[in-house]
Write a protein that binds this DNA or RNA. Structure first.
Length: 568
DNA sequence: GCCGTTTTCGGCCCGACTGTTTTCAGTCG
């Protein structure tokens, strides 16, 4: 059982205890243990095997026993006891904003309502306001919360939230009475899906700034509005929260907004060990207080500025302190992009335009990997058209200086595991990416064996978007990525970090595993236009979240050192 | 249930905010 699953069960127990009206301090202990487990670098199973569970903060003799029970049986007596006393469906109600354990318990006791459907009906009928502690306003808020729950059950995908947030941010920065404005929250950490967009600003006229946002053309609903903070819902059903902070607290506010909780806890601990106090209002000690700039706070704690994507409470503070944090990957490390579609298949830009855009970004090379013949819907190339395209690339390359377009293909891995072109065709190419675009419903074994077969083909350099997921839309096909990682390590095949923001495939968890297995990753945009090359920033974010250093990335290498089979 | 003592009990993060009250409880970040 994975760490996150154990952590989730412990959190569930804590929630149920609170709803059941048991000691809230006890519930807190369960939550603390859950946090320790999910933020530990060592998997809970390994800790259990080595008898080291007690080394986790907040795990004592009783919780150690329960964690072992969960690992052995998948559940524990405590959880069973609670679920027989409290309907599990009450847990779903906790996801509604404004509803906590106390209120859920209160509603359940007074009305017997035990699920969201019942809650919604009661709120509509105006019965809910009869529960002590709930008035008309809360009833309305609960109703609104349920509606939004339906819209964004899994949160807003990065691909939607970030462009929206950057657009708003640009508008705010344009205002004469706004001094600073920045993204905070999970979005700043590039978490795949976020609850809301957090924006922090300093302003000489906070009220006017609130007016500006609440009347913005993208805003559909104003949820709350104070003098220094407001919360709105935009046309795409994304909640945006804007907070105005004092200039001297902008840095610390940004730090706390960005999180994560685990990261902040580690920073606070480090402050304590140095006789300082770090809190939401600043870093205090020696009569002075730091809060204006984030980097000053890190510096005062004897740390380099840790990039937001690494602030997940996975030991990054300790690693930064002893200098073992990997070199932070930057956009400038990328020497090229190995997965781009031209108008020879389903891209919208011509070869020349793509080459120009790549040169503008300072790249040394660009891998043109159009679709292969089976993918007719995306203009897949016949062998004949592929060769004509290659000739066109050769011709262009002759006119460039040191820059080079690479003749590539995104070859389909067919349903039987064979590739869409014979080996003698693949041999003519500089870069071969093999991807699955069909047969998504095959069994895990079948899909895995297709991926593995492709990785074993000596002409394949990279496995493209290995899990096939589309964030917020489809979960991807069933595949044993661990096995693919093992084979890739064996064959020297690279795996892709597809930087398209609605893919981010591989995600950070698997990238970490691949890195640990010694597998190279390739950060590719899969761009279908010249502008699409800019998505590389999302790929960088995934790599950072996985602590991937430049050495582990194929396309940080210059052209003459690219580990591609044909070029080697 | 854990933890750390003002050391075997009593607090657990805490301040802002808001709705519901009539001085405060619950939620959230």
């Amino acid at each position: 059982m994975e760490s996150w699953q154990v952590a989730r069960l412990l959190t569930e127990i804590a929630d149920l205890m609170e709803i059941a009206g048991e000691d809230s301090g006890k519930a807190m202990a369960y939550r603390r243990a859950a946090r320790s487990i999910s933020s530990s670098l060592i998997p809970v199973e390994v800790l259990a095997q080595n008898g080291e569970l007690r080394s986790l903060p907040g795990v004592g003799p009783a919780l150690e026993k329960k964690i072992r029970e969960i690992l052995d049986t998948g559940t524990c007596a405590q959880l069973e006891r609670l679920t027989s006393a409290v309907p599990l469906t009450l847990l779903d109600m906790l996801a509604i904003p404004e509803l906590g354990a106390k209120t859920v318990r209160n509603i359940y006791h007074h009305t017997g309502i035990d699920d969201i459907a019942g809650l919604e009906e009661a709120a509509r009928k105006g019965i809910l306001r009869k529960v002590p502690g709930i008035g008309v306003k809360r009833e309305q808020k609960i109703l609104a919360g349920i509606r939004r729950l339906d819209l964004a059950s899994e949160g807003v995908p990065l691909a939607i939230a970030r462009p929206l947030a950057l657009g708003l941010l640009e508008d705010l920065r344009f205002l004469p009475y706004v001094e600073k404005a920045a993204l905070g929250g999970a979005l700043r950490r590039f978490v795949e899906t976020v609850d809301q967009v957090d924006i922090l600003a300093t302003s000489s006229e906070p009220e006017r700034l609130m007016d500006f946002l609440t009347h913005h053309k993208l805003v559909r609903e104003v949820e709350s509005r104070g003098s220094r903070a407001c919360s709105v819902v935009t046309t795409l059903s994304v909640r945006v929260r804007l907070e105005v902070v004092a200039r001297e607290q902008f840095g610390v506010a940004l730090l706390y907004s960005t999180g994560s909780r685990g990261h902040l806890a580690a920073l606070e601990e480090r402050a304590r060990s140095r006789g300082l106090v770090l809190g939401p209002h600043g870093l205090e000690g020696d009569g002075a207080s730091l809060g204006a700039r984030e980097e000053d706070i890190y510096e005062a704690l004897g740390l380099p500025l840790i990039p937001p994507e690494m602030r997940e409470g996975r030991g990054e503070v300790a690693a930064a302190a002893d200098g073992s944090l990997p070199t932070v990957l930057r956009l400038g490390h990328l020497k090229g992009d190995l997965h781009v579609h031209s108008d020879w298949s389903d891209g919208i830009a011509g070869l020349e335009e793509l080459a120009r855009a790549a040169m503008d970004r300072g790249y040394e090379y660009l891998g043109i990997c159009d679709h292969s013949r089976s993918l007719a819907i995306a203009g897949g190339l016949s062998v004949e058209r592929l060769r004509r395209r290659n000739a066109a690339i050769d011709e262009l390359n002759a006119s460039y200086g040191s820059f080079r377009l690479l003749k590539g293909i995104e070859v389909d891995i067919l349903k039987d595991g064979s590739l869409d072109y014979p080996d003698e065709v693949l041999r003519e190419l500089d870069v071969v990416i093999a991807s699955i675009h069909s047969g998504f419903r095959q069994s895990k074994e079948e899909i895995t064996s297709r991926l593995v077969a492709a990785a074993r083909n000596p002409h394949v350099d990279i496995i493209g978007h290995p899990t096939g997921r589309l964030i917020g839309r489809r979960g991807g096909y069933e595949a044993d990525i661990d096995e693919l990682v093992a084979v890739a390590a064996d064959t020297g095949t690279a795996l892709e970090i597809n930087a398209s923001p609605d893919r981010l495939d591989l995600g950070p968890e698997y990238v970490r595993k691949a890195r640990e297995a010694g597998v190279m990753l390739s950060i590719n945009t899969d761009a279908h236009s010249a502008e699409g090359l800019a998505d590389a920033v999302y790929g960088i974010s995934v790599a950072r979240r996985a602590w991937l250093s430049p050495e582990g990335v194929v396309n940080t290498r210059p052209l003459d050192e690219l580990p591609l089979r044909r070029l080697r």
